[in-house]
Simulated scan of single mutants.
Amino acid sequence: MSSDFSPEVPVLLLLFNRVDCAERLLSLLKSVGPRKIYVSCDGPRLGNHNDVFAVNAIKEKVLTSNWKGGIEVLFREDNLGCRKAVSGAIDWFFENEESGIILEDDCVPDLTFFSFCKEMLEKYRHDERVMGIGGQNYFSNKDFQYSYIFTKYNQTSGWATWKRAWKHYDRDMANWPSLRNSDWLLSIGSGGKVFASYWKSIFDKAYEDKDFSSWAYRWTFSCWAQRGLSILPTKNLVINVGIGDNATHTKNDDHPIFRLSLEEMSFPLSHPPIIALSPIRETWLDVNVYRITYKSYVKSILIKNRSTRWISSLYGFMANIVRRARIRCSMLR
């Protein structure tokens, strides 16, 4: 293992109201010592005194830290919310840099994550097929031949990308209406009708609801609109600790990303000979991470169509009868 992280790779920190998470990440970066650190912190929510206290504490910590390299700050006076604050910070980052690492305050990276990103940023700098570099590996079976794989799914907790990729960020999803009623989603990765229905619902909400807080879904859409892929390491290099009452989206840990352990990447890296997806692994991600299943597909249709709720009740009634019949049969054996 080597942690030969180049201080020439800049890092963007996305902070808000979690003082303990911010302190942990700032302390880690002191040991890494990047050339320049960019720190963005959203403003406190209106009337939220806890936010005011936390944001002020974070600002003081950032400004009084003794950094080896340069530091740039973007402290918002008003609360922009997750979508605008994060995407605006990344815009600001790439007004000054050609590539870099982006860390949200709720992620904890292994030191080898920085070395991994440095090498990937350089190797795929000019390859338009690659839009991002993730830090997490969700797979329970880690029998991999190489140090990383390619996937249709981008990651947005601890990741890296280039200015040439971020320029495609479609913040208003302007291209969605022209793609919505086409077969576009069916052609993404190992997608099928269930996959297409799942993401169509999400993209509809992101497009129609301007207050929808997720910037990440818009980034996923932007990457797929460019037929872009992401790099996923075969070791889990980032864990996410952003759960609980202060979390923006995740209030509990009932998800695979919160059951990951931190691992080290081995160097030198072993590179796959071609850029290609594994249909088996993509389907595994669909089902186990995004929970895109036929069962959830049918359930979503029944919930959306209120006129057929009686079918949902009937479905549950029949399933209960079948379950009881199986129990009786097993008792008779």
Rank of each mutant, 00 (worst) to 15 (best):
M1R: 05
M1W: 13
S2G: 04
S6C: 13
V9I: 15
P10H: 09
P10Q: 10
P10V: 14
L12H: 06
L13W: 08
R18N: 15
R18S: 15
L26A: 12
L28F: 13
K30P: 05
V32Y: 09
R35V: 13
V39D: 07
G43F: 15
R45N: 12
L46M: 14
N48Q: 10
N48M: 11
F53L: 08
A54L: 07
V55R: 15
N56G: 12
K59T: 07
K61M: 12
K61Q: 10
V62C: 06
T64I: 11
W67L: 00
K68V: 14
I71V: 12
E72S: 11
L74P: 02
R83I: 04
R83W: 06
K84H: 12
K84S: 11
S87M: 07
G88Q: 02
D91F: 05
F94C: 02
E95H: 08
E95T: 08
E98S: 07
I101C: 02
D106S: 06
D110V: 10
L111E: 00
F114S: 02
S115Q: 03
C117H: 01
E119W: 02
M120Y: 02
E122S: 07
H126T: 10
N137M: 00
K142D: 00
Y146H: 10
Y148K: 00
I149Q: 01
T151I: 07
T151K: 01
T161N: 02
K163M: 02
A165K: 04
N175R: 15
P177T: 10
S178D: 09
N181G: 10
S182Q: 06
S182V: 14
D183T: 15
W184I: 08
W184Y: 15
L185S: 08
I188A: 09
G189S: 08
S190I: 08
S190A: 14
G192M: 04
S197R: 13
S197I: 09
K200V: 09
K200I: 10
Y207S: 00
E208Q: 14
D209H: 13
S213H: 13
S214Y: 10
W219Q: 10
F221T: 01
S222M: 11
R227H: 14
N236T: 09
N236K: 07
V238G: 04
V238N: 07
I243G: 06
I243L: 11
G244Q: 05
A247V: 13
T248E: 06
D253G: 09
D254L: 14
L260S: 08
E263N: 02
M265D: 01
F267Q: 07
P268W: 03
L269C: 05
L269D: 03
P272L: 03
P272K: 06
I274Y: 02
I274A: 00
I274V: 11
L277Q: 00
E282P: 04
V289P: 04
Y290R: 00
Y290W: 12
R291W: 07
I292G: 03
T293K: 01
T293V: 09
T293Q: 01
S296A: 04
S296D: 02
Y297R: 00
I301W: 14
K304D: 05
N305H: 12
T308M: 05
W310D: 00
S312N: 06
S313M: 09
L314F: 15
N320E: 06
N320C: 06
N320T: 07
V322L: 11
V322F: 12
A325V: 14
M331R: 14
